[in-house]
Simulated assay, not measured.
Amino acid sequence: MKFAEITTGKRILLGPVTVDAEEIIDFAKRYDNQWFHTDPQQADAGPWNGLIASGWHTCSLAMKLVSNGVLADSESYASPGLQYLKWPNPVRPGDALTLELQVKESRVSSAKPWLGIVRWQWVMRNQHGVDVLDLEATSMFKIAEAESGPEAA
């Protein structure tokens, strides 16, 4: 998707992607080796009543959906970061996750007319409609100066 298509107010639905116990455990053993992500038996007796995915795994799943569904073949080249990141509920084995993107702001930089800036909220939900990820990100796009048009801000 090109920067010009990512307009303020636009909503984009991506997914679903399903996560299983083996993927949760493999990711956690590599990147977040805590028992409630890696040991199903111990996790069953823990406060979460079962195995849960690392929040970083959840973020990775969301990023894969965005990079394949929106950023592929775009002018995207960087992000200065997130305004916030929340994991309101855990992801569990068997969850089918969908991601909703809402573009809060899309503009061309007035100082750098080759720079497109998108501020957007990403909300990932499981198959029950329960939020499992909520973040607000800023993404940057290298665009041609000719695309800046009259809405440059």
Rank of each mutant, 00 (worst) to 15 (best):
H57G: 05
G55K: 00
W35Q: 10
G116D: 00
P113Y: 00
D26C: 12
Q121I: 04
P88R: 11
L14A: 11
V130Y: 00
S106C: 08
S67F: 12
S67I: 10
H128S: 08
S139V: 06
R92M: 06
W114Q: 09
A96I: 03
W35H: 10
I25N: 10
Q127M: 11
S67E: 06
I12G: 01
M63V: 01
G129Q: 04
W87K: 11
L99W: 04
S110C: 02
E23F: 13
I25T: 12
I25R: 06
D44A: 15
A45T: 14
M140G: 00
L82V: 13
E136R: 04
R119V: 15
T58W: 06
E75C: 01
E5Y: 04
D20V: 10
F36M: 15
D95Q: 03
L14Q: 11
Q102V: 10
P88A: 08
S74H: 02
E75S: 03
S106T: 03
F3A: 01
V123M: 07
T7I: 13
M124Y: 00
A78Q: 04
S60V: 12
K64E: 08
E145Q: 13
V66S: 02
T7L: 14
A62R: 03
G15S: 04
A53F: 03
G129N: 01
M140V: 02
V123Q: 14
A53I: 03
A96T: 12
V132L: 05
A45N: 12
D32Q: 12
F3G: 02
P80E: 09
E136L: 12
K10H: 07
A72Q: 11
Y84H: 15
N89C: 00
S106M: 02
H128C: 04
S74W: 07
K64S: 08
S79P: 09
H57W: 07
D134I: 03
G9Y: 07
L65M: 15
A146S: 15
F27D: 05
P40D: 05
D32T: 09
A144Y: 01
L97K: 09
W35K: 11
L135T: 15
T8R: 15
D73R: 14
T98L: 07
V130N: 07
K64A: 02
P47H: 11
W35V: 15
V132W: 02
A78H: 12
Q42F: 11
E136V: 14
E145Y: 08
I143P: 00
V130K: 14
D44S: 13
S139M: 09
I117R: 02
N49K: 13
D95G: 02
A62E: 06
Y84L: 12
P88V: 03
A21M: 05
A45G: 05
S79C: 10
E22N: 15
A53T: 01
E22P: 05
W56C: 01
L14T: 06
